[in-house]
Computed example of a mutant assay.
Amino acid sequence: MVRMTRGLIVIDMQRGFDDLDFWGPTSNPDCEENVARLIGEWQRTGEPIVIVRHDSESLASPLHPENPGNALVDAVAAADPALFVVKSVNSAFYGSPDLGGWLRAESIDELVICGIQTNMCVETTARMAGNLGFSTTVVLDATRTFDLSGEVVGVGVVQRTAEELMANTALVLQEGGFAKIAATSDVIGADAPG
């Protein structure tokens, strides 16, 4: 059996997500460390890394290009990506340069996805990856998100904790056939350096 070429997609690991006054309560304090472990493993094996940055169009957002929160966290900023994608929407497949075209040109057909936010950009990118035919894995403990609440027409006020949202995303992606769900140790092995 021929092994597929696998790429690591690191989504929106930006300093602005540390602004809890803006985003609210968060989950999974080990996210950044696990992302750094994944990057370290990909660098060790020489497999391709794609870094994705969200450039918000809202000046009020910590992720706007004119705000310091747009910067990548240190572990990600230090990586040497094969491709750097900038986007202003949820899916990394709608960024620049064209992620899907690059993956196909490089014969990368297996994607391992991590980053922020679990239920937003990570989930949207994973759903599209699955729909586009990529073998996709989301490393859940290398993602995180924030509590969310709002009024939903026909439902009323809905509130979910970050942990609930992570679990919901994992369930929908796995049971919907979009992606496999894994832990960092499943992907790189418990004994891998990191």
Rank of each mutant, 00 (worst) to 15 (best):
V157Y: 03
F146Y: 12
D98V: 02
T26P: 08
L165M: 12
P193A: 14
V76I: 07
A170S: 11
E123Y: 01
A192E: 07
Q159A: 14
C121D: 02
A162H: 09
I113S: 00
A170V: 11
S61I: 08
M166C: 14
A179Y: 10
V50E: 00
G101D: 02
Y94T: 08
F84T: 14
L8T: 00
E175D: 11
R37S: 11
Q174H: 09
D30F: 00
D109K: 04
R3V: 04
V152Y: 11
T137G: 13
V35L: 04
A129N: 07
S107H: 12
L132F: 12
F178G: 11
S91V: 03
H64M: 00
E164Y: 03
I49Y: 04
W23K: 10
V2G: 05
N119P: 05
G95Q: 00
G189C: 03
D55G: 15
V2I: 14
T45C: 06
A190Y: 06
A36K: 08
W23C: 05
N34V: 02
V138T: 13
C121T: 08
T118F: 01
G100A: 14
V139L: 04
C121S: 14
G130M: 01
L165C: 05
R144G: 04
V158G: 10
G194D: 12
R6C: 06
E106C: 03
T145P: 09
C31M: 15
Y94A: 07
V153D: 12
L20T: 09
S61T: 07
V152T: 13
D19N: 15
E57M: 08
R15Q: 14
G95F: 00
V172E: 09
M166K: 07
S96L: 10
A167Y: 00
H64G: 08
I51C: 10
N67W: 01
G100V: 11
H54C: 09
I181Q: 05
